[in-house]
Design a protein around this nucleic acid. Sequence first.
DNA 1: GTTGATTGGGCTAGTCTCAGACCATTGATG
DNA 2: CATCAATGGTCTGAGACTAGCCCAATCAAC
Lengths: 242, 242
Amino acid sequence: MLDESARLMTVLRPVRAGNAFEETVERLLQAIKLGVVAPGEKLPPERELAVRLGISRVTLREAIRALQEAGYLDVRRGRYGGAFVTYVPPRPADGDLRRVVADMGTADLTDALTFRMAVECGAAQVLAGTPLTADRRAVLERRLADLNAASLEDYRRLDTAFHLSIAELTGSPLLAAACADARLRVSDLLNAIPMLQVNLDHAATQHRAIVAAVVAGDPDAARRAVAEHLEGTAALLRAFLS
Amino acid sequence: MLDESARLMTVLRPVRAGNAFEETVERLLQAIKLGVVAPGEKLPPERELAVRLGISRVTLREAIRALQEAGYLDVRRGRYGGAFVTYVPPRPADGDLRRVVADMGTADLTDALTFRMAVECGAAQVLAGTPLTADRRAVLERRLADLNAASLEDYRRLDTAFHLSIAELTGSPLLAAACADARLRVSDLLNAIPMLQVNLDHAATQHRAIVAAVVAGDPDAARRAVAEHLEGTAALLRAFLS
DNA sequence: GTTGATTGGGCTAGTCTCAGACCATTGATG
DNA sequence: CATCAATGGTCTGAGACTAGCCCAATCAAC
């Protein structure tokens, strides 16, 4: 990765990650696992969703059927029907984390963690560096409050919502997409980490620090706060690499 | 973008940017415009390139033919033949910038600038935050020296190389790809900006500051140095939005 | 109940894309 | 000058994907 060919690797990477079906399954799984569509809610109607995803309804339906058979969705016909999310993130059990880490491979893991660190810090910095309108500030503080009031059941979903809103509030779709992508790549890991009260308290303090720095308009502090927050996760995961 | 639906927009975005042909043209144009394949050099052989891009040779050849007809490539048959890059970035003329900005639209422009700011600052921060081996440090300083010694003809290409090596040196392919993507989205803009000596001198100072901060292992300073550097470009472009 | 709007289910004809094989050209090498 | 390896040029049959259409089920409203 040190020589001239690094950029060839970067730019001449695969144009498509797989076929349309696979990519669609992946994308829907994103929406479900990131909690964009919460358990009990339903996906948009097939026709609308197909347009949004830029694929045909046939392909979308194949993907939905795969997720249905895998137990993520419950599809019901007729008016007020739809594809309802049944997936509830399982409570992490001992050994889950080690298994997930082993499944990913150390290279992908460090790549994902590095990527997440860069884009989330960048997003926080950018957001802190621009004047925050009152309503945007309200959104951020609302997400923080929601997260602090969350049950264990909802915690990961609302944590995701909080983190992603930082990127969304910058107003850059590209940045929001990058952060969503980064989050997804570590979501299996996060779901496998036991949620201990001491860790949650620690995270809550860090979340408040992030919001405070953003509201104060201090890019350096925002960057540091996010970095510190993510470093906690990274350090925990790195312990499993040795 | 402030409500719940922001994440729906983010996650349920199009699965594919277009058909395989269009995406391939775009990707090859990246390689050419970013100077990954310099003028006079040739692309890898079709068979190899098709495998790398994950597409069929037929589709790749259609893309190559399009770029040939558009004047970017000169394709020669036989041994030692290949698709040679003929494109040389044109010297910016007055009015180019205004036209390019108008073509992009203000929304896409601010999106691209914001995205670039976030990922490049994030990359510099990450790189500064990890111990730099001697050879990696040498690569970075080599790129800086190359850039400082560049002719006007080579400047943009080597500037790209310098900026991208920061992301590449983090060792994260995802981050490298994000930075390459960000750079590409502003490359037409950068190419339309007249290269004035005073600006080049200014940029050179900032580039040195970035390298110094990275080498010193100071993430905050690195982040600030990159932010300041990119802010110059952004400010110049924003002037065309009013 | 009947109706009507909304939603999933399914079919078909046509286009895009692919894998693989074979042909044509070039030019360094012996 | 003949050879041959590397490279672009071309064809074909199969599979993936799409657009558009109509059918079937459901359920609130009347």
